[in-house]
Design a protein around this nucleic acid. Structure first.
Lengths: 237, 237
DNA sequence: CGGGCTATTGAACTCTATCAAGCGTTGTGG
DNA sequence: CCACAACGCTTGATAGAGTTCAATAGCCCG
């Protein structure tokens, strides 16, 4: 009962379900399954049969893809109210990536049938999904362009700024990423190695731009990073 | 009248409109605008206000994105029956890329209002769009992974194989890409420079694996390229 | 015929991956 | 509660894939 109310209230904020009235929301909610996960748990694994589609209610998780040769890239971090693992989209019926919680999380899940029913009954959800997917596509394309045309340092700066913007906690001394991010994570996010990331962050720290303990990163001066992310001047100033 | 019939017949083959009955197809068709383009004409330009969504009936075009510093990447080649420039998706209401015809082409276009009406009247179209978009997303992600983890030669091999598979004309001596592709195009497609592509193709030609005049490429032996591409992974065309 | 494209190829350079070693913290099991 | 392994991070050295710079040559078309 309590859970019920909490889930429903959260659902109302999910972009995917914008425009549904309370009764519809309830119907959607009743078709869902509620799951709790600890930190560092796998929600689904790349290659597994894709039965469930998810919305994250609380917590944080990362979606990563790995290539046969052992390399791995980080597709995205997922925050509250975002959808992930949208089954409908995978024609192969396999998850193309692995989703792992970064902090303890709560998710709602719909199985394939429930999802199709939902899309059929509530065309509005399909339209929302189209829009969200379009954004996702634009995002990936933009990161592809970045990877193809920008140097590593700039890519790392951008990645950090994106993280800070989306999930930064600001205080007097700067903005801190609200969840654990390792050098390796940043490397997977920008298509480089943890060594290179480490060197870059060390440099920035020596300049006082950032501050960083293990898996914690705090940006003192976003504007400097922004200039690294955009400018085109030599860097040993 | 004649055009009308041709357009309608073509429309029936467009994946986006699968599942519509003839009357519905007609309605969709009647909301469209028919446009002819010569070779090397721009259909829409990156940054322009996005008023039209398109389906390609005949011809071929490329969709390219350029970064502020002058670099450019090739998102995709569009062939007959494919949709492109889907306005709905661009929240910014700007085209994120430039579409240029590669051969003389015929397109159908819907303006924003017509598109929304279509999606509302025919939920099936929205579902189709979701699926197509999902494929597109998977494709981009797969290419992102490639760019982040594979060497240039392998990426070029994959790109060439994809082109050959999707639009190759086979004869006794191999498969020829059916439309003009320059070294620069291949470079933009794989995130490298025309110089590197040129060197690679020269090497392959000396090995007798391909044959190539200006903007024409013919693959003699796809299996060799496939082994370069180390095909333990699907090409995701 | 000249001026654009398109492509080829050499040479120098450099960014970044790779290899290698070591350090401090965390946390876990005895 | 201590010891030791595991993890995350740093930093130096080295090498190489691929970019950049530069020069040339063929082809197509007006």
């Amino acid at each position: 009962m309590h859970v019920d109310m909490e889930g429903l209230r959260s659902l109302a904020k999910v972009p995917l379900f914008q425009g549904l009235d309370p009764d519809q929301l309830r119907a959607v909610y009743e078709g869902s399954t509620y799951k709790k996960k600890g930190a560092n748990e796998v929600v689904f694994r790349q290659g597994q049969e894709a039965r469930w589609s998810y919305v994250l209610l609380r917590g944080r998780l990362k979606v990563a893809q790995s290539s046969p040769d052992g390399h791995q890239i980080l597709n995205r971090y997922v925050g509250p109210e975002e959808m992930f693992g949208c089954v409908l989209l995978y024609r192969s019926h396999r998850y193309p990536a692995t989703a792992t919680t970064v902090s303890p999380s709560v998710v709602l899940a719909w199985d394939r049938d429930a999802l199709y029913r939902m899309l059929e009954c509530f065309p509005r959800v399909a339209l929302n999904a189209l829009e969200l997917l379009g954004e996702e596509l634009a995002m990936v394309r933009s990161r592809y362009l970045e990877l193809a045309t920008e140097r590593v340092e700039r890519r790392v700066a951008r990645a950090l700024l994106r993280l800070a913007e989306k999930s930064g906690k600001a205080d007097r001394h700067g903005v801190e990423i609200a969840f654990p991010v390792s050098r390796q994570d940043l490397a997977d996010l920008t298509g480089t190695t943890l060594h290179t990331v480490s060197r870059i962050l060390s440099g920035w720290r020596q300049q006082g731009w950032i501050e960083s303990a293990r898996r914690r990163i705090k940006v003192h001066d976003p504007s400097v990073l922004r200039s690294i992310a955009e400018d085109d001047r030599p860097l040993h100033t």
